[in-house]
Write a protein that binds this DNA or RNA. Structure first.
Lengths: 337, 337
DNA sequence: ATGAAAGCGCTAACAG
DNA sequence: CTGTTAGCGCTTTCAT
C-alpha cells in the first residue's frame, strides 16, 4: 500500500505538504506540481480510516429504517442521501427489520465511533434504546416518530400524525360515511388511530370496537387479511381507513376479490402517499406527508448537532400532512345510509 | 472520550490485557474480572476506527444498487445483508441512481480503504469503472450483471438472462402468440431481449421492429408509456413481454385503461418476479430469478476474495431462472389467430 | 498470561 | 508557506 510518506519522499517534500495539497490548502505552485505528479506516478489514494482516526470524525452518517419493503422508507432514503451528500458526508443505509438485535447493532456503530451521527425511524424496538442513548450525547435525530412522549434530549422531525388521522376521518365523514373500519399497526400507529377516532367522536360517532383491527406489521398482506375479516364480518361498514398505503393496497384487493366495488360499495383511504398509490386500481386516496421536507429538516438538525454540539438543544419539528383525493373514496350510497 | 488506556489504568493492568479480554482471548480470571468492572464503571466502548486502522481492515462491505425504487434490489439487499451479517461483517447500502458521479464515489470508498469489499449491480455507468478497477486488485463482485463480455479479473454472480428471455418467449409461443411486443431497458437488458428473440427465430418467427420498444429506465412509468404506444399503434399485437416486472405492471394498467382485458385480449409477461407481482390485477406471469441464492453466492465469493485474496480466481456463476405462471397470460383467442 | 514498545496512516500544532 | 514533532486509539510483535 502506498502511503502519504511515500508520496512525500518521492516529491521531495514533507508529509505535511502532501496533506496540504490534498486538503486544498494554499501551497507554493512548484510544491503543488511535485506532489501531484508523485501522487499520480505512485497511484496514491488516501486512507480514509487513518484520516478519520486523526480527525476524530468519520464523515459517515447512517440512516436507519425498519424495512426497505415499505417504499415509504425507500422514498425518504433517497431524499436524505441527497441532502447528506450536499454537505459532504457519506450516507449509510441500514435496516432494523423490527429486530432488537439489529437495532442495537446500529447503536453500537454510533457509540463505537464508526459513524458521526444517525437518523433513526421509529420501529417496534428502537424507542427504548434511543432513550438510553439520549443520556450520553451522541448525535441522533429521530424521524417519522410517532410514540409519545417524544424522548427528551433528542431532536425529532416528524409529521403531525394525529392530524393525519384526523384528516382521513374528516374526509370520510364529509362523504357521509359513519360505519368505518380501521386497520392500524400496533403499537406504532397509535397517533394516526387516535386522530381518526377523535374526529369521529367530535361528530358524536363512536366506532365499534370490532371494526378496529390491529396488525403487527404494516404490510400489504396484513391489510389484505384484516380487510377480508372486516368485510366478511361487518357488511354495514362502508369505508376503511388503513394507517398506511401498503395496507390500504391490501384492502383494495381484498374488497375487489370479494366482489365489492371500490369506491361504489366501499371507500378506502390510506396514509403515506407512496408512489405506487397513484397506480393502484382504483388510485388510492391518501394522506400525504412531506417526505422531502422531513428528510431535509432531519439532516440539517443532525448536522448541526454533529458540528456544533454545544449550542444544539433538542427540538421537535412537526410537519403538516395533506389530503390527496384520488378515486378510492366516494360519497356513501343512499341505500346504505 | 474514555479509551482503552483509561480502562487499563483503572484496572491496574496493561492495554494489552484489556485488548485480550475484548477479543475473547485466554486471560486469568482475576484479570478478566478487573477489566470487566473497569469497563463498566467507565462506560468504555471501543473505537472502531482505531481498530480498523491497526488491523488494516474495516469489516465493512458495501452493496451498491442502481435504485431502491425498484423493489427487486430492495429484496436482494435484505438477503445480502443477512448473509454478510452471518459472517461478522457490517453492511452498507448505497445507490448510484445511474449517476456516474455517485458511482465513482462508491469506488473511491473502496480504493480509499473505507470498506473491505463491494458488491456491485450493473447499471448504465458502473461497467466502465469496474473494468478499470479490476486491474488493481480490490475485492469486488459483480451481481445481476448482464453486459457481455463479463469483465475479466472480476467475479460475477448472475442469472442466465438470455435463458430468462427465452423462457418468456417459449411460454408465449406455447400459448399460440405470434405477434408480440417487447419493452426493454436499453442497453442494460440486451440479453433478456436477445433470448426472447432467439426463441421466436427458432420458431421461424421474426418480430416486427416497431414492436420492440426500448426505455431509458425500467420503471413503471416507462412500461406504461410504451405499453400505450404499442397497443395504440398495433392492434394485432396479442402479447407483450416487458423485461422487468415494474414495467410489466405499467403495461398491465395501460392495457386495462385502454379497455383491453388482460389476459383475454392481451397477455403480459414480466421478468424479475418481485413480491408485488403476486398482487397486480391480474397477478403477473413472470420469470423468477433466485434472488436468495444469488445473494448468498455473491457474498461468499466476495468474502473469499477479501479473506484469501491469494487463491481466489475470478469466476462466473450463473443461476437458473424459472417460469412462474399467474394470470396475466392466456392462450390467444381463436378469432385473433 | 502479561508487560513494554512499536507502528497502522493520517492530521494538528508549532516553530521557523 | 514548509518542516518538525506529537499524537489519534487500537493491535501486534516480542520479551518476560
Amino acid at each position: 500500500m502506498v502511503t502519504m510518506a511515500d508520496v512525500a519522499r518521492k516529491a521531495g517534500v514533507t508529509k505535511q505538504s502532501v496533506s496540504n495539497v490534498l486538503a486544498g490548502k494554499p501551497v507554493r505552485p512548484e510544491t503543488l506540481e511535485k506532489v501531484i505528479t508523485a501522487v499520480k506516478e505512485l497511484g496514491y489514494t488516501p486512507n480514509l480510516v487513518a484520516r478519520a482516526l486523526a480527525r476524530g470524525k468519520t464523515n459517515l452518517i447512517s440512516f436507519v429504517v425498519p424495512t426497505l419493503k415499505n417504499p415509504f422508507y425507500a422514498e425518504i432514503a433517497e431524499e436524505v442521501e441527497q441532502t447528506i451528500d450536499e454537505f459532504g458526508y457519506q450516507f449509510i443505509l441500514s435496516t432494523t427489520r423490527n429486530d432488537l438485535k439489529r437495532s442495537r447493532q446500529q447503536f453500537e456503530f454510533l457509540t463505537h465511533r464508526a459513524i458521526d451521527g444517525m437518523l433513526l425511524a421509529e420501529d417496534h424496538y428502537s424507542s427504548y434504546d434511543a432513550k438510553t442513548l439520549a443520556q450520553r450525547d451522541f448525535p441522533i435525530v429521530l424521524y417519522s416518530w410517532e410514540s409519545l412522549p417524544y424522548p427528551d434530549n433528542l431532536s425529532v422531525v416528524s409529521i403531525d400524525f394525529r392530524q393525519a388521522g384526523f384528516l382521513a376521518a374528516s374526509h370520510l365523514l364529509e362523504l357521509g360515511h359513519r360505519n368505518c373500519g380501521v386497520i392500524y399497526e400496533n403499537p406504532t400507529h397509535q397517533l394516526r388511530l387516535s386522530g381518526f377516532l377523535d374526529a369521529f367522536r367530535m361528530n358524536g360517532i363512536t366506532i365499534h370496537e370490532n371494526w378496529l383491527r390491529s396488525t403487527a406489521d404494516a404490510s400489504y398482506e396484513s391489510g389484505y387479511l384484516q380487510g377480508k375479516n372486516i368485510l366478511r364480518d361487518f357488511p354495514q361498514v362502508s369505508a376503511i381507513f388503513a394507517t398506511n398505503d401498503l395496507m390500504a393496497a391490501g384492502v383494495l384487493d381484498a374488497a375487489q376479490e370479494m366482489g365489492r366495488d371500490v369506491p361504489k360499495d366501499i371507500s378506502v383511504i390510506g396514509l403515506d402517499d407512496i408512489a405506487q398509490s397513484a397506480h393502484t386500481r382504483p388510485p388510492l386516496t391518501s394522506i400525504s406527508i412531506p417526505k422531502k421536507a422531513m428528510a431535509r429538516e432531519a439532516v440539517l438538525l443532525l448536522l448541526r448537532s454533529i458540528e456544533y454540539s454545544a449550542d444544539s438543544l433538542p427540538v421537535i419539528t412537526l410537519l403538516h400532512p395533506a389530503l390527496v383525493i384520488r378515486r378510492s373514496t366516494a360519497p356513501i350510497e343512499e341505500s346504505l345510509r
